[in-house]
Design a protein around this nucleic acid. Sequence first.
DNA 1: GAGAGCATGTAAACTGTTACATGATTCA
DNA 2: TGAATCATGTAACAGTTTACATGCTCTC
Lengths: 177, 177
Amino acid sequence: MSLSHALLGLLAVEPASGYALTKSFEESLGRWAWHAGHTSIYPELNRLAERGLVEVTAEGARGSRTYAVTAAGREELRSWLLRPPQQSGKVRNEEVLRMFLLSALDPGDARVVLAHIAENTAAGAAELREVRAAHAGGSFTGPEGFGQLAAEFGLRQYQAVHEWALWAIEQLDADPA
Amino acid sequence: MSLSHALLGLLAVEPASGYALTKSFEESLGRWAWHAGHTSIYPELNRLAERGLVEVTAEGARGSRTYAVTAAGREELRSWLLRPPQQSGKVRNEEVLRMFLLSALDPGDARVVLAHIAENTAAGAAELREVRAAHAGGSFTGPEGFGQLAAEFGLRQYQAVHEWALWAIEQLDADPA
DNA sequence: GAGAGCATGTAAACTGTTACATGATTCA
DNA sequence: TGAATCATGTAACAGTTTACATGCTCTC
């Protein structure tokens, strides 16, 4: 299960509470890499703690618990990240699915959907350019690096999809069918 | 559930058997958009048939059944594709997750992983350039268009990730940390 | 003191994967 | 005729989501 590794990874960068981790998923990780809600995060943190891969390092207001990775957790994360890229990860992305199914629509409908995609990706890219500017200059590894990696990845992704959508519209316009 | 829409979409482009659909998932859809194995595809086809969204149009050798979308199925697919992009599709992609967690590694390890990513994406892009060449010239909608859309999307995706990996390596090399 | 947001949790329902299972057809 | 591949399916299990549930703390 990759949720455990996602959590180990976030905690390896920076200790956090389940609540904070949930926010991270909502804002960055979950948009690109792995979606998860608090109802899967909290039980998983408990399981990781039982396995000795994370530990509670502080308890704060409103019953909040700050978790950090243990040495064993860091080792598990490292070996997972360095493990040879195993065959065919299981991808699931509804947005991309919509794009792939566009050719099932008639050209008029397809054009509408593509225009939406082009618009949304342009907006997303603009947003991330600001995020990137805010993160610029920090060290590459550690919390700052995480933000930079994520922002740059997302930005390039948005740009690629944006250009793909424009290309597709062009094809449609040129297509005699 | 998006699996049903993935199946409707593929069948809207071209009628096919469960077996053929399974191949489509392995080769294109499943690599980028939505992963599914035959054990989820067959039951789902039966459920779609019960709901009247697809129907068996031919039975062939070895008990194979060719499915096609009905008018109701096409309408359901269309309304799903045109439906306003609802909040936060649920993304799950282990490859991308690995990329995001890179900053949890020390620079030496991160460099190794990034080099692998750069290599794999370059190979993937090269492969898709050939696929694209094979599909070139056909009509944009319909079966040919599907191949073109997918190949072009995948190619641009590979290129974007490849360039991102090179960028990240550059950052690492420049980073004093 | 009321409301927003912090912070965590459980349980049932749903979805998807793994392992198991079967038989037909083609090709060497 | 044996191996590979076509073609479909079930059942147990694992993982996720949805709905429900609770209480604390800060700010106005």
